[in-house]
Every structure is written in C-alpha cells, then in structure tokens.
C-alpha cells in the first residue's frame, strides 16, 4: 500500500450505485458459509455421517418391535426417524454451532454493519445447512425405500410439508438455542435437550402409537413430533384431516415461538 498506488487508484466516493438485492446478499453469505462448513471436519462428520449411522444402528431395534396392531412396518418406522436425524444433526446442531461461533468471532457484528438485514444474516448463514439437510433427506428416503422395500408414499405432500416445515422450524430452534448459548463449547451441551427429547419422545425411535396414551398425548406437543408424524402419514396415508391440522398447528406454533424468542433474545455480539 504505497502512496503512489492510492494515487493510481483514486477511491472517490460515489453517490449513484446499483443497490444489492436481498437474494444476492444472502447468496454471497451462503457461499462463504458453505466453504466454511466444508472446512470443519467435525461438523461435516456430524452432519453427513451420523444420521445414516444412527438409522442403521436403529434398524435392528425396530425389527424387534411388535408393530402388528399399529399398521406400521419396519420401513415406515425407520424412514421418518432417519429424516428426523437429518433435521437434528445436519440442520439443527450444525446451525447452533454456526451461529454461536460466528457470534464469538464477531462475524455477526461485522455483518450487521453492512447492508444485510438481521433476518438475511440468519437465513443466509442457514442456507448451506438447509441444502445439506434436504439433500440428505432425499438420499435417506431413497436409501430406506430400496433397503427395506417400502412402497411409494400414499400422501406425498404430507411428507413434503413435514420435511419443509421441519427444516424451517429447525433453523428457528437453532437460532433460539444459540441465543441461550454463551460459547462454542457450550453449544455441544445446549443442543442436547432438544436432540435427546426428540429422539426419545418424538416418535423417531419409538412410534407414539406404541406408547401409553398419557405419555403419547404429551409427546404430541414436542417440536419434532408433528414433523415425524407428517412424514410417516405421508408414507402410510393413514391420517385424518383433524390429525393433520393438529400436527401443522404444533409445528407452526413452535416455529412462531422460536422466531419470537430470536427477535427478543438473540445476541449479535459475545458477552463481555
């Protein structure tokens, strides 16, 4: 940076300019986040390998289950669970890490000085994890279908709605969790409650149909339960309009509560 350089490249202020669009800004941010994700081996392992591994590990347990009275098969228990793992590991847990680390690196604060709006920052940074999660859902669904000889979904749109709403809710829940997480180390603990509760109570491993009714009625209200339910109903086709409406209401409610929490509580700078 010599003075002659600056004379050769005068950096006069310009008052007329083409203004960036929200889409272009988020794409630029998402591209950088994708590169960063690819460079983080631990996150890549959690996001790409764990869901498939856990699905495989779960398959032997599911085969032991007594499913005769429920109208479910090994395939229709395992497949929604697999997609649930994808939402939890590839989307939710990855994004909690992204939000917390970027905050600690002061990246979020820096981004807020620019033209990106707050929502664009969170959405743009979420895009790579969302894309990975969706691609993984497709791969796992196809994999399960082939391996377990599952018939084609009877009400595909229910499954699609479940996946899409599940992805959006996972992003919102990740931002909420990040709001209550102080550090990158803390993020490894703070993701646990949702992950464990979902695995135990959202029908990912044990379908709600085989649970005692009292417990099942509480578990219906957990965030991931309606998502798993919608996906399962998509494949079995066995859902009443009332059931579906209830599931949509629960997943929307969690999403709205999370967005509200993020608006109120999300921190853009580390605590000092």
């Amino acid at each position: 940076m010599s003075s002659t350089d600056t004379v050769r490249h005068p950096i006069a202020a310009q008052s007329t300019r083409t203004v960036t669009t929200a889409g272009a800004r988020m794409t630029a941010l998402a591209r950088a986040e994708l590169a960063l994700l690819g460079r983080n081996r631990a996150t890549m392992f959690t996001a790409l390998v764990l869901p498939a591994m856990l699905t495989f590990a779960m398959s032997s347990a599911v085969k032991e289950m007594e499913l005769e009275d429920t109208g479910l098969s090994v395939g229709t228990v395992l497949l929604p669970g697999a997609l649930g793992y994808s939402l939890l590991f590839a989307v939710y847990s990855t994004l909690v890490g992204v939000f917390v680390v970027r905050r600690e690196e002061l990246v979020l604060k820096r981004l807020r000085t620019g033209e990106l709006r707050d929502t664009e920052i969170l959405a743009g940074a979420s895009l790579p994890a969302v894309a990975i999660g969706l691609a993984q859902c497709v791969v796992l669904a196809v994999g399960c279908t082939l391996a377990l000889d599952i018939p084609a979904p009877r009400a595909g749109w229910l499954a699609l709605a479940g996946i899409l709403l599940g992805v959006v809710m996972s992003c919102a829940l990740a931002a909420t969790t990040a709001a209550f997480t102080r550090s990158a180390e803390g993020a490894q603990i703070s993701v646990m409650p949702l992950m464990l509760v979902s695995m135990a109570g959202s029908g990912m491993v044990v379908p709600l149909d085989v649970m005692p009714e009292r417990i099942a009625s509480v578990c219906e209200l957990l965030p991931l339960t309606p998502v798993i339910g919608l996906i399962r109903d998509g494949w079995t086709g066995g859902a009443s309009a009332g059931e579906t409406f209830g599931q949509l209401a629960v997943v929307m409610a969690w999403t709205i509560i999370s967005v509200f929490a993020v608006q109120r509580r999300f921190r853009w700078e580390p605590r000092r």
Partner: peptide, 27 residues
C-alpha cells in the same frame, strides 16, 4: 464501517472474505 475488531471467519481466505463482502455491498 471499520469496527475496532475484525470479525472475519478464521477459516476463509482474504479473497473469499472480500468476495463475500462484495456480494453484500452496493456498487
């Protein structure tokens, strides 16, 4: 704006960081 402390992802290169910021900057 230049903040007191950088705020750049540690694992991006200088060019990648600049390209990202350029995508978010008018003109």
């Amino acid at each position: 704006v230049m903040l007191q402390e950088g705020g750049f992802p540690a694992e991006l290169t200088v060019a990648e960081t600049t390209r990202m910021w350029a995508g978010c900057t008018s003109g």
